[in-house]
Amino acid sequence: MEKERKPKNIFVQGAISPEKIAHSIAAHQSKTDIGGHSIFLGQIRADEKPEGKVIAIDYTAYEEMALEKAFEIREAIFEKYPLTCMHIYHSLGEVKVGEICLFVFTSSKHRKAAMQACDELVERIKAELPIWGKEILDTDNHVWKVNV
């Protein structure tokens, strides 16, 4: 029987810890029909801007809309690829340079579906979820992050 899927909270307050990621990987050891995982980790980069150097990003979101949209994307990706599992976590609030702000994790029987689904998910998350990054600079200024 098809499992009914419901909107999940994707938001994590602050940085996503390496322990959380390790724990998430370990939690899949019991799912023995999985043959491949694909993981994307977004990390805060210390960009040099004309206004100063980035030391952190402060994320805000239109949370209700983001969760609805994330659910819609999730359903579409499950429809398109033969996946066993899919997990999306995005930070809210301040995340310092070098820390993880996005964790996308897909699993399937064979590697290609997991890899392609992961790639497509990351692209859609960045383009379609109402989330904003305010880049905090070492000069006490800030600039609004622009996705390329």
């Binding site: 809309m65 609805e68 990351v122 998350i125 979820l129 904003w132 992050k145």
Partner: peptide, 25 residues
């Protein structure tokens, strides 16, 4: 919570939001 692409009537009780370009991830 749905993006609008063209001029749309705003009826009572609608939730309206102003969204600059997204920059998550």
């Amino acid at each position: 919570k749905k993006m609008i692409q063209s001029d749309t009537d705003i009826s009572q009780g609608k939730e309206i939001a102003l969204l600059p370009p997204f920059s998550g991830g």
